[in-house]
Simulated assay, not measured.
Amino acid sequence: MEIPVFTLDAFTNVPFKGNPAAICPLMHELSDDLYQKISAEMNLSETAFITRINPSDSFTTGSRFRLRWFTPTNEVNLCGHATLASAAVLFKHKQNENPTLVFETLSGDLAVTQQGEGYIMDFPLNPPTKEDANEFRDIIKAAVGNHPIQDVYLSSNTKKLLVRLADSCDRSVLTGLKVDPVALQSSETSGRVKGVILTMKGSPDCQPGYDFYSRFFSPWNGIPEDPVTGSAHTVLGSYWSKKLGKKKMLAYQCSSRGGELELEVRDDGRINISGQAVTVLQGTITL
Rank of each mutant, 00 (worst) to 15 (best):
residue 278 V to A: 07
residue 248 K to R: 12
residue 74 N to M: 12
residue 43 N to W: 06
residue 136 F to G: 11
residue 198 L to H: 07
residue 234 T to A: 03
residue 207 Q to D: 09
residue 169 C to F: 02
residue 233 H to C: 02
residue 235 V to R: 00
residue 134 N to S: 12
residue 60 T to F: 15
residue 158 T to Y: 08
residue 147 H to G: 08
residue 139 I to G: 09
residue 154 L to D: 05
residue 121 M to F: 09
residue 179 V to M: 03
residue 17 K to T: 02
residue 272 N to K: 15
residue 126 N to E: 09
residue 226 D to C: 08
residue 92 K to L: 13
residue 36 Q to E: 05
residue 166 A to G: 09
residue 110 L to I: 11
residue 138 D to R: 13
residue 16 F to T: 02
residue 139 I to V: 14
residue 273 I to K: 04
residue 270 R to E: 01
residue 266 R to W: 11
residue 200 M to N: 11
residue 251 A to H: 06
residue 60 T to I: 15
residue 113 T to K: 15
residue 229 T to C: 10
residue 157 N to W: 03
residue 77 N to C: 07
residue 52 R to Q: 14
residue 85 A to W: 00
residue 284 T to F: 14
residue 124 P to K: 04
residue 67 L to Q: 00
residue 116 G to K: 15
residue 92 K to S: 13
residue 269 G to A: 04
residue 115 Q to N: 15
residue 251 A to I: 14
residue 194 K to A: 13
residue 91 F to L: 09
residue 186 S to V: 15
residue 59 F to M: 02
residue 24 C to R: 03
residue 246 K to T: 10
residue 77 N to D: 15
residue 29 E to C: 04
residue 239 Y to C: 15
residue 199 T to W: 07
residue 257 R to A: 09
residue 119 Y to S: 01
residue 10 A to D: 05
residue 184 L to R: 00
residue 163 V to E: 01
residue 223 I to S: 00
residue 50 I to T: 00
residue 16 F to S: 00
residue 99 P to N: 13
residue 57 D to E: 13
residue 20 P to W: 02
residue 177 L to I: 10
residue 113 T to I: 04
residue 57 D to M: 14
